[in-house]
Nucleic acid binder design. Sequence first.
RNA 1: GCCCGGGUGGCGGAAUCGGUAUACGCAGCGGACUUAAAAUCCGCGGCUCGCAAAAGGGCAUGUGGGUUCGAGUCCCACCCCGGGCACCA
Length: 742
Amino acid sequence: MTEQPAKRYDPHAIEARRQAAWRARDAFQTPSLTEGQPHKYIKPSAPFTSGNIHIGHVRSYSIGDAYARFSRARGDAVLFAFGFDAFGLPAELGAIASGESPSDWVSRCATHMTGQLQRLGFSFDWDRSFLSSEARMYRWSQWLFLTLLANDLVYRGTGSVDWCEHCSTTLATIQVENGLCWRCHNPVQLIQRTQWYLRISAYVPENDRRSQELAASGMWDESSLASQRFVLGRVDGVELDLRAPDGTELTVFTPHSDALAEARFVAISPKHPEVERWVANPAVLEQLEELRSGGLQRDSREADAIPLIDTGHFLSGPSGDPLPVLISPAVDGRFGATAVLGIPELDQTDAVIAQRLAAQVDAPVQAPLRAESALYEVRPAVRYRANDFSISRQRSWGTPIPIVYCEECGTVPVPFEQLPVLLPLDLKPTGAGNPLAERADFVQVDCPRCGGPARRETDTLDCHFDALWLWIPACVPPHERERPLGEIFALEDLRQWLPAGRLVAGSDSGNFVFDQRIVTKALRDIGPLSFIADGEPFAGCLFHEMVIRDGRKMSKHLGNVVDPDELVERFGADTVRLAVLYAARPQRTLNWSDSAVLRSHRFLTQVWEYSHARLADAEALASADDGEPVKDTSEHLRLKLSTWCETAVEKITEEMQSLEMHSAVRNIMRLFDRIKDFEKRVAARQGALRRADSDALIDALTLLAALLGPFAPHLSEELWIALGHNGDTQLPWPGVSSQVPA
RNA sequence: GCCCGGGUGGCGGAAUCGGUAUACGCAGCGGACUUAAAAUCCGCGGCUCGCAAAAGGGCAUGUGGGUUCGAGUCCCACCCCGGGCACCA
């Protein structure tokens, strides 16, 4: 009857035991779906192969895992798996720093991170995980690229990139420091390049419309909807067709429908499809070309520095006044590729532009005479900031673009049956040039059309493009992975799991998600995803905020990084997971504090030790004779306990369904306090617990163990077993009605 | 500049609908246990006035207004902090 050493809470022993048991029984293997079975595909974010799992990952996956385990406990078939987002600049830089090939570096990182995630006990189906940099995976990107190209949703255009002459390489924004190359500190130039673009504009209006449906469904939380609204950049206003003296018309837009008479100029985006019509003058054409090749400098986004071209043309304005026609990229950022009315009175940017316009005109321009105030038809109109974006990168660590340039046939797409175009694995980027372009064995190729000499495209796809499909292959059973992609989309499994029931990702994923929604609609119309009628990849979505410390983002530079490994080593996985869930509601920034971990650890320790102590008491009571029947003085307390339990289950179930994990954990903690309170009160009333009290107490503790399942899965399963239940299967989630003891 | 968050004790932070502000925890103080310490357990705890204690009073949710019987919560204006603003993922 004395305290046994086994009753001490030893998270490391418990967690090792449970994880071994899960492995032994393939606990998290994705079940194949049977007709009509409730199921959920819970999509976690694809971690970048950065080398280490950080506390933000722990938060993200703790939320997803709690939801996955909750869903399984309620009897749903669950798909919970992910792939690593393994291409991209940081991997290239990591490889340069370590002297490895990116391929080796990335797989080493993935192995290490997988180990970290397994130690934390997340219930991923590891058989389905993958790296986006595997050939059997990036063929998805190539297939998607060609499919979209064939449907005019991928096209070639011209754009400007930062270029370092000394390193003969393109630079990412983060590699440009004060206008200098980060590596050699020489000045960076903007050069013009032909690039591949994704035509998201084709589906932006539908994304807008569908967002409203998603909001109505209640499955998308407010912060994820807000991020979609932000990426969309919808502006409501009116449009009208203005006429030039020669009769040419231009449709202009303004959000200020009530101030049309105040218009002072018209500004056209350089990307406007009809912009050429307004640059007849050679000097103006030259300025436009300069603007296009120079691109938009990062530091000249402000209205007082942004390029401004006066075309010399005029349009007759709504009030009859002649309005000068300008070309400026200032339009793009606010309304997309369109033409707008400049209304200085109401708009600050317009005010600055009007001022600059007045200053830059030396002699009064010979404006056409004021025309008769024309009556214009004013139509309601909508503009979006979301615009087509470049998907090609001049880097070696990415999906090769399946395009060949032939002297005879020009630009030739690689035929589908020749995919994948393999990326050489032994690439050693140095930071200078693009090593892919220097590989004769890669570049030189026979034209797939005429067989003549040809060159491969050496640009690779941005990993943003990979992300467009990264959520799909988890639905493909591992043994089907190698099949042609056309067949994979026909798999019954894939069609069952899609669309995903819930996406759980960081709030910085707004852009990805927006574009995934676009591409799903494109693939719906093209055919492969025709079974997703609304073109929405995620039925539900939760964006959680990040983990910060001392009010700042964590960074090595600030020395405020929290190391998950260290925490797991000190307190165990259950404690760490519970702490990040309990510390803040998912949608809110979690300001890290050690007290949350200490609190969690103490709570779990108490639950463990208290449950075992009461279990020992119960056994002692069972073996002793209960003695004379005495007056039952604690019945009302047992009833109260039972009510508390029922209320808790009801509340916590609701909170789990809406992913309010922080409240769920707090309610579990409260329930534990009440259970202890029950014991205290019974003891105070009648001195000791009798059989009926003890039974009620053990029932309540059993319930507590089941409720803890999604949060502290290792501890709860061990408790469940200690309390006399079968630990070889999924812990069931308590039902409200079945919970009342007979 | 624009967009999105946030501002409550010494600290992290609670407070579904507008209804006892400061739950819970950390640090602190007092006590129990101990040769002692650690660990654990119990208790106290916004600021201020009140001779000490108690009773009691006053003031407190970034600032200033407003709505209301009643505001941390709703409205308006402002200040401060953080994050984002697209070739970083």
